[in-house]
């Protein structure tokens, strides 16, 4: 299991290729990548991501541990960036390896649902002359109830 919180970009292709490599008992790998989306029709100058150093790593590790307890997983990877990002940049990725795809898919969705609402990150969109904190969505909180 690996949890990484960093400002620098990560190499998604290399991470995906290296994840669970050589684990011949794992029949399924699921990866998810979150990308900065421009919802301002071309005006997005930057997406600033603030986090809580210390708590972020703890919260992500706890979420990954929880996933390992609930599903049969061979490995889990979570990478999340902070700092100033731009449209098209990869913000984060999760990867899960399991013997069967159901565990890998469900655990990846669980990780995403939880890290959206339970890991201490906050997004601020800089567009035109304004900068606005992205509001948490009720749907994201509601998504946790299915687990």
């Amino acid at each position: 299991m690996r949890v990484v919180v960093q400002e620098a970009p990560f190499d998604f292709a290399a991470e995906a290729a290296g994840f669970a490599d050589g684990r011949h008992d794992m029949g399924a790998v699921v990866t998810f990548t979150g990308i900065v989306r421009d919802v301002t029709s071309g005006d997005l100058q930057a997406m600033e991501i603030e986090h809580y150093p210390g708590m972020t790593e703890k919260a992500l590790t706890a979420i990954a541990e929880e996933a390992r307890q609930r599903w049969s997983l061979g490995d889990v990877l979570v990478i999340h960036r902070y700092g100033r990002l731009h449209a098209g940049d990869k913000i984060m990725m999760v990867a899960t390896a399991a013997r069967h795809r159901k565990d890998a898919f469900e655990a990846a969705e669980f990780l995403m649902d939880y890290l959206k609402s339970r890991a201490p990150f906050w997004k601020k969109e800089h567009a035109g002359d304004s900068a606005d904190w992205v509001a948490a969505r009720d749907e994201d909180e509601a998504a946790l109830t299915r687990w």
Binding site: S117, W133, A136
Partner: peptide, 10 residues
């Protein structure tokens, strides 16, 4: 003790 708005990760 830390105070913050609802989180928006992912």
């Amino acid at each position: 003790i830390a105070f913050f708005p609802p989180m928006t990760g992912g």
